[in-house]
Amino acid sequence: MTTAATLPQTLEIGRVQLRASNLDRSLAFYQNVVGLKVLRQSGREVEMTADGQHVLLVLREINSARVLRRNSAAGLYHFAILVPDRPSLGLVLRNLIDSGIHIGQGDHLVSEALYIQDPDNNGIELYRDRPRDTWKHEANGNVVMTTDPVDVDGLLAASEGLSWTGLPAGTVIGHVHFHVGDLGEAKKFYVDTLGFEQTAHYGDAAMFISAGGYHHHMGLNIWAGQGAPAAPADAAGIDYFTLLLPSILERDAVAERVRTAGYRVDEAGGVVTITDPWNIGIKLLVKL
């Protein structure tokens, strides 16, 4: 099916909200290991930031939350924090090494990435992009990505003599990546209805989609198994993420496409929330 409408090229991911089983433990992790700062706290909910202004992560504690086994349900695979440059990623690596946490890594040609897990088994990617004019494309337009070893020595050298003070200003949520129960249904929702465009695929098990030619704003995979059920509402994991759109007109157009296709759309207090087939919330916001 050809996409009837596409998302605007200026689309951005805004923030991610997670359910936490132990807020104090998660808060310490995201401050000390990841490098975010507390912007404000209300009860057992905390907004976190890199620059002291923009919220990147919200942690919401739920009582007696279950912590799921990794790759056991549809839901969050990882959310990805994009730092502005290579020295910044080098400093991230130094801090992760000092923390003693297990670190995964991958050079994806378009980016260099480090992977960790939070105390609730939520995946986190911390990465930097290579300049867009160096990205290679296949004949069909898809972005060429792979997973090679990261030049760890080069990252450490790029940050030599610099001091870690947490994630720098200019850090954003670069993309989100989900386990889904069916790639065909995911494509129907995210590509054919929302208006993302496919940018790459990994065999029959994963696809990558974006707006505006980015390598990917979203990854979608069936690594939790074909037909994987949605994560329970009382389990640690993702509540929602936000899409930042350039105008109310664009926001309403997306909401109408979703509503017409028969998916759930809620509006409250001027905020439009849509829900994907695996109960992942997406708040449509207008970038100010």
Rank of each mutant, 00 (worst) to 15 (best):
Q17M: 15
F241C: 01
I248H: 09
E185I: 15
G281L: 11
Q53F: 10
S88C: 02
T193P: 01
R66M: 09
G237L: 10
V258D: 01
S111C: 02
R259M: 03
R264H: 14
W223D: 01
N221D: 03
H108T: 03
F178V: 06
I81T: 05
L68P: 06
H137L: 15
V176P: 00
Q53A: 13
M207E: 07
I124S: 04
D85K: 00
S210Y: 07
D153H: 10
G75Q: 06
G154I: 00
P229S: 13
R130S: 12
R69E: 11
V33C: 11
L288E: 15
K283V: 02
D129V: 01
V265S: 14
T10G: 14
G52V: 03
D204L: 02
H175Y: 09
G203T: 07
T273C: 11
L194R: 14
T10E: 15
R60E: 08
I103P: 03
V33L: 14
A255G: 12
I13V: 04
R66V: 10
L288S: 14
A20N: 06
L162T: 10
T10H: 11
T10Y: 09
R132L: 14
A28D: 14
V55C: 09
L18W: 05
N22L: 05
I282D: 03
A80G: 06
R19M: 10
I124Y: 15
T147F: 00
Q198I: 15
W164Q: 02
N95M: 02
N71W: 14
L39A: 11
W278I: 06
S72T: 13
P119G: 05
L244E: 02
V16S: 06
L23G: 07
R66A: 13
H175D: 12
H201D: 15
